[in-house]
Simulated scan of single mutants.
Amino acid sequence: MMISLTELLQRSSANYLIYDLGRRLSAISQQQFADIEAQKQPYPFPLQQHACFAIAFWQEADQPFIWFLKFPVDERGLLDLSTRDQFCHNVITLLGNQITEALSDEQQQQLQNAPGLFTPGDDKRAAFNARLKLDLAQPPSIYFESAQSYLRQPEPLDSWQQLGLQGIHDVVARLRQDEATCMAITNNLQNYPAELWQPLAIAMEHQDLPASLYHYLAAELDQQVSNPSDDVTPRLHALRALAGNHTPAFGEQLENWLKSYQQHPLTDDEFIIIAGRLYQQLHDHQLVMVFFEALAEHNNQALLVGLFTDLVRLPLLRPQLLMMLQSSDLAKPLFKALQQLKGNRS
């Protein structure tokens, strides 16, 4: 029987941390990862039918080794173990149980070709590096101070172009321990160049922010919804930045917005971000129903089918979405849209 990653890590006597790199960066406990590997529980947040992990492991004071791993999952979210087994086989063949030993160039090349390894995008890699250094009580990157200085006092205004992406992620990851910078961001956010909003929002999407910043961002979103402009970009960035806000108050805010679809319609991109970033809020039965009712009124069947197909693969949402698919007690536009979806699936 093939050894699991958990067993491989434990046999090496390495310290290790595991992170989910699928939809949003988040820590996974060692026990939860072991249960996912053993198919005792589904991978919680599949992305394009895959589970994505970052595993950092090290011996004592050494710098950690990093594996970025991507394995297929089935429609229930259970791990397809064949790719995992191939990766473990390659590691054992090359290194045995001594996975923290230095690799030769040839071994490094062979390991890079192992099934299951992948390269995250720059944003997720920066978010992961920022979180890992924080969790290991290590100093941030050399780009941290310049990013912190600019976010506290954005002068000269166009100097943001000199900021390193890693520095922005480092600052955002440490905002819960940096009240001064957090307060400066709330005070200066309207003054930052529009081009800075996107990398800043993406960094915020992947970290757990102070409650005060979530409150400010939610208020900004509410203001933008109530007083819409032709440029929806600020709303999109605010939605991304609020990805980690799981409070009932924010759920109610989203629900009220979706219920007022006729007065405050959403764009395709806003529906996509809510589904792709705020999926944990949609665990609320009433909110997910209101979301799909608004999406049905949006009259884009292809978008509705795509988002339903994506969300039904999340174990968190799968039971209630399958029940919705079978229900006849739905608003007429949603019932009609789901009937079409069922016809396409059959």
Results as ranks from 00 to 15, higher is better:
residue 259 K to V: 02
residue 8 L to M: 06
residue 92 I to G: 04
residue 187 N to C: 12
residue 179 E to F: 10
residue 75 E to Q: 14
residue 48 Q to I: 10
residue 63 Q to P: 00
residue 218 A to P: 04
residue 342 K to C: 03
residue 300 N to I: 12
residue 165 L to M: 13
residue 275 A to D: 00
residue 243 A to G: 11
residue 119 T to W: 01
residue 208 D to S: 15
residue 266 L to R: 03
residue 246 H to I: 14
residue 165 L to Q: 13
residue 277 R to P: 00
residue 197 W to A: 09
residue 187 N to Y: 08
residue 113 N to C: 05
residue 55 I to Y: 06
residue 288 V to N: 03
residue 179 E to T: 15
residue 257 W to L: 02
residue 218 A to M: 09
residue 264 H to Y: 04
residue 52 C to H: 12
residue 9 L to Y: 07
residue 42 P to F: 02
residue 110 Q to M: 08
residue 28 I to C: 08
residue 275 A to F: 06
residue 198 Q to K: 15
residue 200 L to I: 11
residue 17 L to K: 13
residue 236 L to P: 00
residue 177 Q to F: 09
residue 250 F to G: 02
residue 207 Q to N: 10
residue 87 F to G: 05
residue 272 I to P: 00
residue 172 V to H: 05
residue 243 A to H: 09
residue 50 H to L: 02
residue 14 A to H: 00
residue 125 R to H: 05
residue 106 E to F: 12
residue 189 L to F: 15
residue 174 R to A: 09
residue 119 T to A: 03
residue 325 L to T: 14
residue 85 D to A: 15
residue 75 E to W: 07
residue 67 W to C: 07
residue 45 F to C: 07
residue 133 K to W: 01
residue 18 I to K: 05
residue 155 E to G: 03
residue 321 L to K: 00
residue 19 Y to D: 00
residue 149 S to L: 08
residue 59 Q to H: 11
residue 157 L to Q: 14
residue 231 D to S: 07
residue 133 K to D: 00
residue 46 P to S: 03
residue 41 Q to D: 05
residue 187 N to T: 15
residue 308 F to M: 03
residue 144 F to C: 08
residue 205 E to P: 02
residue 192 Y to L: 13
residue 236 L to C: 14
residue 235 R to E: 00
residue 269 D to W: 10
residue 262 Q to Y: 02
residue 145 E to C: 08
residue 8 L to N: 02
residue 136 L to E: 00
residue 326 Q to A: 14
residue 343 G to S: 08
residue 264 H to G: 03
residue 281 Q to V: 03
residue 202 I to M: 10
residue 69 L to R: 13
residue 116 G to F: 01
residue 227 N to E: 04
residue 296 A to V: 09
residue 39 Q to I: 07
residue 290 V to E: 02
residue 47 L to H: 12
residue 307 L to N: 04
residue 139 P to F: 01
residue 239 L to P: 13
residue 212 S to H: 06
residue 39 Q to C: 13
residue 233 T to Y: 07
residue 26 S to R: 15
residue 50 H to E: 07
residue 57 F to K: 10
residue 94 L to Q: 14
residue 304 L to A: 04
residue 275 A to V: 12
residue 163 L to A: 10
residue 28 I to A: 01
residue 48 Q to W: 02
residue 196 L to G: 06
residue 140 P to Y: 01
residue 328 S to D: 13
residue 218 A to N: 10
residue 244 G to A: 14
residue 96 G to A: 07
residue 226 S to A: 15
residue 324 M to Q: 11
residue 341 L to Q: 12
residue 129 N to W: 04
residue 278 L to Y: 01
residue 39 Q to M: 06
residue 115 P to D: 03
